[in-house]
């Protein structure tokens, strides 16, 4: 198990190296660049040349990459040119990471909290109106663009009804103490209940928008897995022993049905950043997704490089966690 984990982490290192090379080249092949983004189209040749040299973009790409790699190893990923001009890219990341993590966490919790029980219920009531509603609903959930859904939620619940805030992470007037950067957690730790409550309210709409696709997928996989398991002989054995419904549900049905669901949750967590870009943009939520969106608009190479590499690392790590949790659930994997 330990050797396996170490091997996977070494693989991760390789993935990051190759990815950073491809990414570095790809960004510089994109039309436009930081210079046009910063100076606009009407800048003089002279000022353009000056800025290009200042950013080091006049050197051959191999030299640029070598320098980038050298600095990166000592924790210097360059300075932001577009998202938060002048700030270190690492600083931009560290500032915004808690926001996205908090948002993603709530989104995944929502998706799992509703997806698994409803998926189980739909399977148990297969063919009833509840099941049909769930299946149709989850199809719609996957098909509706996140971006459209985010706008719709914002328009209805924030703009029209005014029930929830339309943007940001915290209302301006609130003077909250920062500990971890996770606003809800900070409020709880410092017993600033109003700040925690306010931060939570800011999370509801973006988390709902972000949770829609993972919820729909978790629902469908759970439903299908439970239907499969209900047909298994060992469930009939459990029934033949007269076990109570809760024991059969937890120990014999869900425990087996969870194997494919755990994989799904992992994949969805990994894919969350794509949804976060759009959601954070719509709700002006100051996280990594928003930074990515702005970074692309303004061709902020250092910020984009760091964020995309981290996203890839998160994806690989989540998959590792999924594989390891398999061993916890399924004894047949453990012995291997």
């Amino acid at each position: 198990m330990l050797r396996y984990t170490v091997r996977r982490l070494l693989q991760l290192l390789g993935v990051v190296l190759v990815l950073s090379m491809l990414l570095f080249g790809w960004l510089r092949l994109l039309p436009g660049g930081p210079v046009s983004a910063l100076l606009g189209e009407r800048a003089t040749e002279e000022s353009r040349r000056q800025l290009t040299a200042q950013l080091g973009l006049d050197q051959p790409i191999f030299v640029q990459y070598g320098k980038f790699l050298g600095r990166a190893l000592s924790g210097d990923f360059g300075s932001s040119t577009g998202v938060q001009p002048g700030d270190a890219a690492l600083e931009v990341f560290l500032q915004r990471f808690p926001a996205t993590l908090e948002l993603s966490f709530f989104a995944i919790v929502l998706a799992v909290l509703f997806g698994i029980p409803l998926g189980y219920l739909a399977a148990r009531r297969r063919g009833t109106w509840l099941d049909n509603l769930g299946v149709v609903g989850s199809l719609v959930g996957v098909a509706v663009p996140v971006f459209f859904l985010a706008f719709l939620l914002k328009y209805v619940f924030a703009v029209e009804l005014g029930w929830l805030p339309a943007s940001g992470r915290q209302t301006g007037g609130i003077d909250a103490t920062r500990v971890t950067g996770f606003f809800v957690l900070d409020g709880l730790l410092t017993r600033e209940w109003d700040a925690a409550w306010d931060a939570l309210q800011h999370l509801v709409l973006p988390a709902m928008a972000l949770a829609t696709i993972p919820f729909a997928v978790v629902f469908r996989i759970t439903r299908a897995a439970v239907l499969d398991v209900l047909d298994e002989d060992y469930v009939r054995t459990a029934e033949s022993k007269g076990l109570t419904t809760p024991v059969i549900r937890r120990r014999h049905v869900l425990r087996n049905a969870m194997l494919p669901v755990v994989t799904t949750i992992g994949l969805q967590t990994g894919a969350l950043l794509a949804g976060a870009v759009l959601t954070e943009k719509v709700f002006a939520f100051p996280g990594l997704g928003e930074a990515l969106a702005i970074g692309f608009e303004r061709r902020d190479y250092p910020v984009l490089q760091l964020l995309i590499i981290v996203a890839a690392m998160v994806y690989v790590l989540v998959n590792l966690v999924v594989d390891l949790s398999y061993a916890v659930i399924d004894p047949r994997v453990r012995v291997r």
Binding site: D233, K241, L243, R251
Partner: peptide, 16 residues
């Protein structure tokens, strides 16, 4: 197929 693959024999006997 009549035994639950992810639950130990002990639990499957004791639960009844």
């Amino acid at each position: 197929s009549s035994l639950n693959p992810v639950v130990s024999i002990g639990i499957q006997v004791t639960e009844v």
